[in-house]
Computed example of a mutant assay.
Amino acid sequence: MTDNERSITLTPSWKAFFWSYVFGVVLIPALIGIILLWRTSKKHRAKSYKITDRKITVVDGNYSQNIDLADIRQAVAGELRFGVGNVTIKTQGREIELIGIENPEMIATSIEKAVEAELRRLQAQEQTKPRETKYDPGSMDRLDYLTGLWQQGLVSDEDFEKERKKFED
């Protein structure tokens, strides 16, 4: 990550796992609740989302995937439950859901703005690329060398013209 690249790391709110926690507490006398609480807590801590100026990284346990902002077509906020909701990110070939995000409308809007900024940056970068040269690197030096040989009389006129045409094609 470069020095001027900004990032934010989001984690799901505990409210997104509310019912799993409630059932775990209720089922503690049956010992199933302890297992349910442990699994829910593990699932909750394993998820994180890192949003930078260039990409979004979704970490789910040992599984991680990157989404370039330029590939995102749409970011949609889902319905709110307990003050949290999901943000669905749609790309050309897949959909990724960021679950348990507080204020998902603001996050979806921020992602859309970041996508627009990244597309503008890529377009500006494309416009500032150096123009391509007509000749291969070093070919002009070889042509100068060939011309010098021709001027000194070391290469015949027909050989010079034949070799010079190779540089023009």
Rank of each mutant, 00 (worst) to 15 (best):
D3C: 05
D3Y: 07
N4G: 03
N4S: 14
N4I: 09
E5K: 02
I8K: 10
L10F: 13
T11S: 12
S13G: 09
S13H: 10
K15L: 13
F18G: 03
W19K: 06
W19C: 01
Y21W: 05
V22T: 02
V25P: 00
V25G: 03
V26H: 00
L27H: 03
L27W: 12
I28F: 02
A30Q: 05
I34T: 02
I35Y: 12
I35E: 02
L36C: 04
L36N: 01
L37R: 09
R39K: 13
K42H: 05
K42S: 14
K43G: 05
R45I: 07
R45D: 12
A46Q: 10
A46T: 01
K47F: 11
Y49M: 08
Y49F: 13
Y49N: 07
K50A: 01
T52H: 03
T52F: 02
D53P: 07
D53C: 01
D53V: 06
R54S: 13
I56C: 08
I56M: 04
T57E: 14
V58N: 03
D60A: 12
Y63G: 04
Y63I: 12
Y63P: 00
Y63H: 13
Q65P: 06
N66F: 10
N66E: 15
I67S: 00
L69G: 07
D71G: 10
I72W: 05
I72E: 04
R73M: 09
R73E: 10
Q74G: 00
Q74T: 11
A77Q: 02
G78L: 04
E79A: 08
R81I: 11
F82W: 15
F82I: 02
G83T: 05
G83R: 05
V84H: 07
G85W: 03
N86F: 01
V87N: 04
V87G: 03
V87R: 07
V87M: 08
T91M: 10
Q92G: 14
G93K: 15
R94A: 15
R94L: 07
I96F: 13
L98A: 05
L98Y: 01
G100L: 10
G100T: 09
G100Q: 04
G100N: 07
P104T: 01
P104S: 08
I107D: 00
T109A: 15
T109P: 00
S110E: 10
S110I: 04
S110N: 09
E112K: 11
A114E: 06
A114W: 01
E116N: 12
E118F: 06
E118G: 09
E118S: 12
E118L: 13
L122P: 00
Q123A: 15
Q125L: 14
E126D: 15
E126V: 03
Q127F: 12
Q127A: 12
K129S: 06
R131F: 06
K134I: 08
K134A: 08
Y135Q: 08
Y135N: 11
D136P: 03
D136R: 15
D136W: 08
L143E: 04
Y145S: 11
Y145K: 07
L146N: 06
G148L: 03
Q152R: 15
Q152I: 10
Q152Y: 04
G153C: 05
L154H: 05
V155P: 02
D157N: 14
E158T: 14
E158N: 14
E161H: 05
K162M: 11
K165L: 14
K165C: 04
K166H: 08
K166N: 14
E168T: 06
E168L: 15
E168W: 13
